[in-house]
């Protein structure tokens, strides 16, 4: 097994899938010559040419709309939206079109499209280069939403998304791109969509997270262990459809759950996890389910004091986890 960063894993997945299947192509802003603003597609333009790595005009609705048409006509497009914060112009094409194609045609049409986009904060990206969008899009039936936290999952879930017959929103935590390294299996390490993973076994409480927060939770679990608290850490990996069985299983095992995400609090993913627990594992609870999330302010400000105040960090997760352990 080779060691890769998240961004390298993403690039490798695209490269291998494009080599494997001539109908796979990439379209987005600056993805060609430049290789993407984060270099996710570095080298692919040279290798596959201008009609498989397409520098699109600066128009997100078009990018997704064109991908829809190409998918209808036999292709498997990967769309790169440069930042999740700029996906809104494509909202209609994603939600009203892509997500409804299968349903509105009673199964006659399906769209094998992946929409990749960097999300999340902690990189001084300010209001418009830090947003999390998983709750907004997780709400939409017809879309699958994944948010890998590490290189192996990044590669495996991207391969799964490319081969999937339905539209998949693939969220890449931009802080994790070069921060997180890990082993990546060779060619066919496909990670199934819809399956969470226990990253650390524990018995006293459960930390449920995804993306960058997953790594903070692992750090916190390590600290808790030195204080005699055994924390289980569950990586959701797929936001929609959520692996409810895994959420229920960890709840039944520990009886105490803390959900962590940086997306806004109201009707966020934590709220959904909590509802699943209340409906299915109420009897197993030894404490109220808790959540630590980004606040309900529009987005992460530029100033570092404000940015830190927005983003959950290991210290705050630790404090909340101790509160839960002591309950």
């Amino acid at each position: 097994m080779a060691t890769r960063t998240v961004i390298e894993a993403i690039r490798e997945a695209m490269d291998e899938e494009m080599a494997r299947d001539p109908s796979v192509f990439l379209i987005g802003e600056d993805v060609g010559q430049r290789g993407g603003v984060f270099l996710a597609s570095d080298g692919l333009f040279k290798k596959y040419g201008e009609y498989r790595v397409i520098d699109s005009p600066l128009a997100e609705s078009l990018i997704v709309g064109v991908a829809i048409g190409a998918a209808v006509n036999g292709m498997r497009p990967i769309v790169e939206i440069q930042f999740a914060d700029f996906i809104a112009p494509a909202f209609n094409q994603i939600v009203e079109e892509a997500a409804r194609f299968c349903y509105r045609s009673a199964g006659d049409f399906n769209l094998p499209i992946v929409i990749r986009t960097p999300y999340g904060g902690g990189v001084h990206g300010a209001l418009y280069h830090s947003q999390s969008i998983e709750a907004t899009y997780g709400h939409i039936p017809g879309l699958k939403v994944v948010a890998p936290s590490n290189p192996a999952d990044a590669k495996g879930l991207l391969k799964a998304a490319i081969r999937d017959p339905d539209p998949v929103l693939y969220l890449e935590h931009k802080r994790s791109y070069r921060l997180i390294r890990g082993e990546v299996p060779g060619n066919d390490g496909v990670v199934p969509i819809g399956k969470a993973e226990v990253k650390r076994e524990g018995t006293h409480l459960s930390l449920i997270a995804y993306g960058l927060m997953l790594h903070y939770c692992l750090e916190v679990a390590e600290k808790l262990a030195t204080e005699g608290v055994s924390a289980e850490v569950l990586d959701l990996r797929t936001i929609k459809p959520m692996d409810e069985a895994a959420v229920i299983a960890t709840t039944k095992k520990t009886g105490k759950v803390l959900v962590v995400h940086e997306d806004n609090r109201f009707a966020g993913i934590a709220a959904e996890v909590m509802a699943v627990i209340m409906e299915n594992a109420f009897d197993s609870l030894d404490a109220p389910v808790m959540r630590l999330t980004g606040p309900d302010v529009p987005a992460m400000p530029f100033n570092h004091v404000l940015e830190e105040a927005f983003l959950p960090n290991p210290e705050r997760i630790l404090a909340k986890a101790k509160e839960l352990a002591a309950y």
């Binding site: 009609y51 078009l62 709309g65 829809i68 209808v72 497009p77 009203e96 049409f109």
Partner: peptide
């Protein structure tokens, strides 16, 4: 191609269909 109600959305679809032909 299946059509929805929001008007205009079908124009990029047609461009995508033609792109696939060209590819």
């Amino acid at each position: 191609i299946t059509t929805g109600s929001p008007v205009g959305a079908q124009l990029p679809h047609a461009a995508g269909i033609a792109l696939a032909f060209k590819q």
